[in-house]
Design a protein around this nucleic acid. Sequence first.
DNA 1: GTTGACCTTACCATCAAGGGAAGCTTCACA
DNA 2: TGTGAAGCTTCCCTTGATGGTAAGGTCAAC
Lengths: 136, 136
Amino acid sequence: MEKLITIGEAAQRTGLSAKMIRHYEASGLLKCSKRSEAGYRLYDSQQLQLLGVIKQARKLGFPIAQIQSLLDLLQNPDRTSREVKSIAQRHLNEIEHKINELQQMRETLKQLSDNCSGDENANCPILDGLCQNSLK
Amino acid sequence: MEKLITIGEAAQRTGLSAKMIRHYEASGLLKCSKRSEAGYRLYDSQQLQLLGVIKQARKLGFPIAQIQSLLDLLQNPDRTSREVKSIAQRHLNEIEHKINELQQMRETLKQLSDNCSGDENANCPILDGLCQNSLK
DNA sequence: GTTGACCTTACCATCAAGGGAAGCTTCACA
DNA sequence: TGTGAAGCTTCCCTTGATGGTAAGGTCAAC
């Protein structure tokens, strides 16, 4: 006899919020199979495990759609690690792209900021930089 | 006699989309002062300049609310560069925080990915990593 | 005078997350 | 047995920057 838990306990165990567990369900990630007579969602330990996977994947920044694919692969014994790695690689590229964008911003902003005295004076290289005419 | 331009030309000159110029106006960033008889927005060169500032600031990732403050300071002769620098510094911290988060994700993901053979095998360290039981 | 490019407003979607309302259920304790 | 608190349900709204689309008015060139 499998122990079933309510959404609140599942939330506590996984570190997700009950709100988000319902949201993931609505997004098609993990449909809850059982309900109590009163309509409460009931999760077994396998589903709890999958919720844990969702939590970990979100922590790594995977978008819902990719988590969907990962969950599918996880539950498919015919998967290949190539398929999994491909998803991870795509996400890794995405992450690196974002890092590059942010580093670009940081460099530019840091240069402007370093040139700014930050005192009572109205003159400001940061504003000057923003006014730099890039108009066509 | 100042030359006035329509939103389409302003968009072209600044690199913003007409859509976003209207959006910035709705957000209170830059209200367009003049309309043609037919109701078309008309921008003078000073406003075009400010739109350019908005464009540059967005390029650096500043959120609308901070751009609001920057525009206010830009147009206020009594500003101090300290105020400007403070805004830039806050945003810089924000950027660095995001970079750190992403780098964290990258490291973890890269480790998992490097351990994955990416072949026909079903066994996959990436999935194993995601299943890593973090349940309470 | 018609066509095509441009403008207007208004509404909807994205993405992950959360807020809050209104109403039902469960449980513990007096 | 009653009551109150805590937990659950669904539904709708908000965030932030951006884009899409629709329905309609305007302007200029041919």
